[in-house]
Amino acid sequence: MKKNKKSATVYDVAKLAGVSPSTVSRFLNRTTFVANSKCDRIESAIKATGYKPKFQMRQGDNRRSMTIGAIVQNPDSPYTSTIVRDMEQILISKGYSLIIATGHWQNKLETHALEYLIKSNVDGIIIITGHLNKKLIINTSKTIPIVTVGYDVESENICSLNLDNIMGGYIATLHLLQKGHKNIAHIKGLSTQPDTDARYKGYKKALDEFSIKLNKKLVKQGDFSMDLGYQCTIELIESNVYFSAIFVANDLTAYGAIKALHDRGYRVPEDVSIIGFDDLTTSKYFTPALTTLRQPIEEIGTVCALSILNSVVKGDYQARMPPMDLIVRQSTSSRFGKEY
């Protein structure tokens, strides 16, 4: 007998259209703006692949819709795209589809995204960081299972997954201290994000253990972006406060910091060492290759998907977040000494 042709997936559409799977999902669900140029490519790819989106059942239907909703902040970032990709691979293998809604770090948009997913009659919701009110999350969980990443929420129908960001910040700073650096600057992440404060606490903890007094002039408020990483590094240079290393809140910020140092005539790591946080795919190909704290990004997506499916079917899966790893590359060194 002739085998049935394998049905096209969101991944097939995304690959042909040259966009991320999350962009295809946003196009299909109309949750946020997608550029017209991308819309045209996605529509063409859907026709070419024969992809057929699965639609949700009517509200009030007590059968499973075989869909899972996910709220993310920046769907096009390498960090989020990897998590979404791995979540979707697990869900598709189990016969589920993934609906993605975006919050863009704005509470109003996150609340709207949550309401949209509830109205879409999804079987469960995954929330990847953000600023949603904990009481709102708990109230929502009374009628639908929820998995959160980056929230500390305790409730019967909620699975909270968290990485030890304090330990991550501590290990990153400790690496620089062990290289002989004492004047270590820190560019923080988004001020409203819990991971930001946790990594900063780890930074302070490491300094304290080495009896190094915190110099607040060496701490800058970033937002996890390359642009502010660049700007904060320029401010550090122009402050005339000496530093020989920078611990930045994430890899994207590190890219901006390295560019700023290069533009001002400083070499990494010969003059200033840089350590990031995330270990994005691009970090090992950056020049110099970035030393960073590897978050288990692939595992996060898998654990989220398995956890929400476990909640939907009431299984016995035990969710465990893997530890972070220090990835030492070329951007940190014990060689330093250029004063400014």
Score class of each variant (00 low, 15 high):
residue 127 I to N: 01
residue 158 I to C: 09
residue 14 A to G: 07
residue 161 L to A: 11
residue 231 Q to E: 14
residue 16 L to S: 08
residue 31 T to Y: 02
residue 268 V to T: 15
residue 34 V to S: 00
residue 245 A to D: 06
residue 331 S to V: 00
residue 270 E to T: 11
residue 230 Y to L: 09
residue 92 I to H: 13
residue 294 R to T: 03
residue 44 S to R: 14
residue 71 I to H: 07
residue 15 K to H: 11
residue 119 K to A: 05
residue 58 R to L: 06
residue 217 K to C: 05
residue 268 V to C: 12
residue 335 R to K: 12
residue 252 L to E: 14
residue 140 T to K: 06
residue 154 E to N: 12
residue 94 K to I: 02
residue 181 H to T: 08
residue 166 I to G: 04
residue 216 K to H: 07
residue 189 G to S: 06
residue 260 A to C: 07
residue 220 K to N: 04
residue 291 T to C: 08
residue 188 K to P: 00
residue 158 I to K: 12
residue 290 L to C: 11
residue 122 V to Y: 09
residue 167 M to N: 13
residue 13 V to P: 10
residue 194 P to L: 02
residue 111 T to Q: 08
residue 70 A to M: 15
residue 181 H to C: 02
residue 192 T to R: 01
residue 138 I to M: 06
residue 119 K to L: 01
residue 116 Y to Q: 13
residue 234 I to F: 04
residue 94 K to F: 07
residue 101 A to G: 11
residue 178 Q to T: 06
residue 265 G to K: 07
residue 339 E to K: 14
residue 144 I to K: 12
residue 252 L to G: 04
residue 115 E to K: 14
residue 311 S to Q: 14
residue 19 V to F: 09
residue 104 H to F: 14
residue 37 S to M: 00
residue 50 G to D: 04
residue 331 S to Q: 10
residue 97 S to P: 02
residue 141 S to K: 07
residue 199 R to G: 05
residue 122 V to H: 10
residue 50 G to V: 02
residue 119 K to P: 00
residue 98 L to N: 03
residue 109 L to Y: 01
residue 145 P to D: 08
residue 174 L to P: 03
residue 13 V to E: 11
residue 6 K to S: 12
residue 149 V to Y: 11
residue 204 K to L: 13
residue 155 S to H: 14
residue 75 P to L: 07
residue 125 I to M: 12
residue 258 I to E: 05
residue 165 N to I: 05
residue 228 L to K: 15
residue 142 K to G: 02
residue 242 Y to H: 09
residue 340 Y to G: 09
residue 196 T to G: 09
residue 1 M to I: 09
residue 66 M to V: 01
residue 282 T to H: 07
residue 282 T to C: 07
residue 317 Y to W: 10
residue 198 A to I: 01
residue 118 I to K: 15
residue 205 K to N: 13
residue 76 D to S: 15
residue 48 A to E: 11
residue 261 L to M: 11
residue 290 L to M: 09
residue 108 K to P: 00
residue 35 A to N: 14
residue 155 S to Y: 12
residue 340 Y to I: 06
residue 220 K to G: 05
residue 162 N to W: 00
residue 118 I to W: 03
residue 253 T to C: 00
residue 155 S to C: 08
residue 74 N to I: 08
residue 311 S to T: 01
residue 10 V to N: 10
residue 217 K to L: 06
residue 5 K to N: 13
residue 136 L to H: 03
residue 239 S to M: 04
residue 141 S to A: 15
residue 281 T to D: 13
residue 8 A to Q: 10
residue 58 R to S: 11
residue 17 A to F: 08
residue 319 A to K: 02
residue 152 D to Y: 06
residue 305 A to P: 05
residue 149 V to P: 00
residue 102 T to Q: 14
residue 232 C to L: 03
residue 117 L to R: 01
residue 100 I to S: 00
residue 275 I to T: 10
residue 239 S to A: 12
residue 5 K to I: 15
residue 13 V to D: 10
residue 301 G to Y: 05
residue 290 L to V: 12
residue 266 Y to D: 01
residue 287 T to R: 03
